[in-house]
Amino acid sequence: MLAGKKFLGPQTAPTPESRGVPKWTGTPEEASKMLRAAMRHFSAANCGFTVLDENTSKLIYSKDPDGKELIFTDEVKASETDKQRFIPKSCKCVMAYTVQMSPETMRRSPTMTGGQTTTLAYKRAENIQASVQEFLRGLGYQGLGESSTNALGIAPAFGVLTGLGEMSRLNRMISPEFGPMVRVFKLLMDLPVAVDKPIDAGIMAFCKACKKCAEACLSQSLSLTPSPPGRCEARGTTGHKAYFEDSVSCMTSWREKATTNCGICFGVCPFAKKDKAWIHEMVKVGMSVAPFADSFFRSMDDAFGYGAQASGESWWNLDLPEYGIDSSQPVGAV
């Protein structure tokens, strides 16, 4: 597929107009179901839906990384100029989607092997975005994507609102199926879809007792407070429940200590482990029904050696599946 991210997409697929056929119509439920199947086929781990309202529109950036302003408009067709990108108010359906990262490379952070985990997932996300934008175009709808990696809006926020996962001590989203080992992206559409609800799988509650990521961080950038403070003193961010991190010290340690990007905190997280052993499912059920046992689960996680960092060298000897991910993992919403 065509690589490279574009707000409006590659714009090459024939539209229903050009083919002389009516655009696709169906119920919002049918549309969601169809998109979920298509997204998995394009190699997304999972996807979920919500709508932009007065509140959630705030999660769309006012400017993209290239400096272009993002402006909501009454026009029906999305467009862009040298300085602005126009988002039709009709494109109010948000699809958030996740792309798996290889846990075996991430647990080797901070090394070059660990660092490319990010790049590889971003490359795959480029193809996914272009594919779904073309798919929507073929159906007669618009899909407005990230003009460059991570543009458009706050990804973990949309991930949480669409029920793909919960916020955590990482100040990032953790999904029940893949843990933190997913990157999150978003797309705006004018195709009406059935929306999803945020979930409570006991993940953020588990973070209260765990703190493993914060203890492992090179630069003590993650919060050690028992409960999410809900306000970030450094950035003045407020209004949502989160354990805020010190992003400046995190980034500084990438430059000064790690010399590559980092993800130690992601690799050590108890939710990062793969899902083959039956015990993990039992623990997940246990932590959602018996949060008082969370500290015990955290101690057991240490005792069993989960989340232990591995050497970059040893990665070359592993026999791993494509992209180093398990694509057979079922997801709740699909």
Partner: peptide, 18 residues
């Protein structure tokens, strides 16, 4: 099962404990 699956998960310590 947990021992064999932990070996597949490349978690040697967990596999050994199981």
């Amino acid at each position: 099962q947990n021992a064999a699956a932990s070996a597949q998960e490349l978690e040697p310590r967990a596999a050994m404990v199981f």
